[in-house]
């Protein structure tokens, strides 16, 4: 299982709504809105490809999202990073 964190840059006016919308995703945990337009999320996924897919989906489905910036990725099993 991969765990990745990302900063989602959003349109500040829509930020609160978007934060709520993101909570619907089962494999996304939100960590609040910071400095007006940054939402911190942590994504859990089976593979890196899935993480990427999800990022793409966010960018295409939500017009309010201006960018998705990965900041950290790790794996919760000892040799998952092979």
């Amino acid at each position: 299982m991969f765990i990745a964190s990302m900063i989602i840059k959003v349109n500040p006016e829509k930020a609160d709504d978007l934060l709520e919308s993101l909570k619907i995703f089962e494999n996304i945990t939100t960590y609040g809105l910071h400095k007006d337009d940054n939402i911190i999320v942590v994504v859990e996924a089976e593979s890196i490809e899935d993480v990427e897919k999800l990022s793409k989906r966010l960018l295409t489905e939500f017009n309010e999202i201006k960018g998705v910036f990965p900041t950290y990725v790790t794996s919760d099993d000892a040799d998952g990073m092979k």
Binding site: I7, Y31, N38, Y72
Partner: peptide, 22 residues
């Protein structure tokens, strides 16, 4: 749990990138 810890670490890394302490 280890998972929660890793998630917190990941979120902290994101926060650090924008100068926020979570």
């Amino acid at each position: 749990t280890r998972r929660e810890f890793l998630k917190n670490s990941a979120a902290s890394a994101a926060a650090a990138a924008i100068g926020v302490s979570l």
